[in-house]
């Protein structure tokens, strides 16, 4: 569904992605882990054209991702995104955040969008909070609204950019729980995360990125419990035993 073929990108003279080749099949959950500055978020942001890439190709459902082309809007509807900092629209209620895209981008009627929006908010455990504005919600609740907003576009896949990194520790679980339920429903997901436990439990495959290259990739349990590459081992040791 998502294919990356030798993707390269530099910020000026500094290369961030040095030839990434990977793919995400329909219904698959792929987690991207790696140290900060390894290019994980940049890679994710290239997939839906929030950033441009310099070389190689990214394809979504066979269509090339080109952020300068009008087709990027269709790609973004197919591949939705959830941000580290939620990025909810603060001037709109939870429900309005969710129905904004369906109404104004997809042209659904308000009644139809609202009915589905309420269902989606209930699905992420926020029934009854439809009229709340983002500042009145906890970080975990805001992130779940953001997931509902992504789902409202009926995407083929969702990109998650460190979705729990900005949350208080006790709120991480509620967001990961929603994501696990999504995975079990068969949603295609590409997740940049530091939650190794989530990757081990939920992901089909894990990519370990370091210095702009994929150092190791494979089935989640194998990579996370018996990493082959010393850099993967070193990274996991530091993440799992910070002291």
């Amino acid at each position: 569904m998502i294919e990356l073929d030798d993707v390269r990108k530099s910020y000026g003279a500094v290369p961030v992605l040095k030839g990434i080749t990977a793919s995400v099949a329909r219904g698959e959950v792929v987690c991207v882990i790696g140290p900060s500055g390894s290019g994980k978020s940049t890679l994710l942001r290239c997939v839906n054209g929030l950033e441009s890439y310099d070389g190689g190709a990214i394809r979504v459902n066979g269509r090339r991702v080109d952020r300068a082309d009008r087709s990027i809007r269709a790609v973004r509807v197919q591949v939705s995104m959830v941000f580290q900092r939620f990025n909810l629209f603060p001037h709109r209620t939870a429900l309005e955040n969710v129905i904004e895209g369906p109404i104004f981008v997809k042209g659904e009627t308000r009644a139809e969008a609202e009915a589905r929006g309420r269902d989606l908010l209930a699905r992420v455990g926020l029934a009854g909070r439809e009229e709340a504005r983002p500042p009145q919600l906890s970080g975990g609740q805001q992130q779940r609204v953001a997931i509902a907003r992504a789902l409202a576009m009926r995407p083929d896949a969702i990109l998650f950019d460190e979705p729990t990194s900005a949350l208080d520790p006790e709120l991480v679980g509620e967001v990961l729980g929603v994501m696990r339920a999504l995975a079990e429903d068969g949603m295609t997901m590409l997740v940049v995360t530091h939650e190794i436990g989530f990757a081990r439990e939920v992901a089909d495959r894990v990519l370990f990125l370091d210095g702009g290259v994929i150092v190791e990739q494979g089935p989640a349990r194998r990579v996370l419990t018996e990493p082959e590459h010393p850099r993967t081992r070193d990274f996991l040791r530091r993440v799992l035993n910070p002291l």
Partner: peptide, 29 residues
């Protein structure tokens, strides 16, 4: 916040729709 614009783009909004629905209402205040 740039994240607002990215969120709008992520749900498929073009420049004008992003302005009208996301940026201007907040800038107005």
């Amino acid at each position: 916040d740039k994240g607002q614009i990215e969120a709008a783009q992520t749900i498929g909004m073009g420049w004008w729709l992003t302005m009208r629905r996301v940026v201007l209402p907040q800038a107005f205040r």
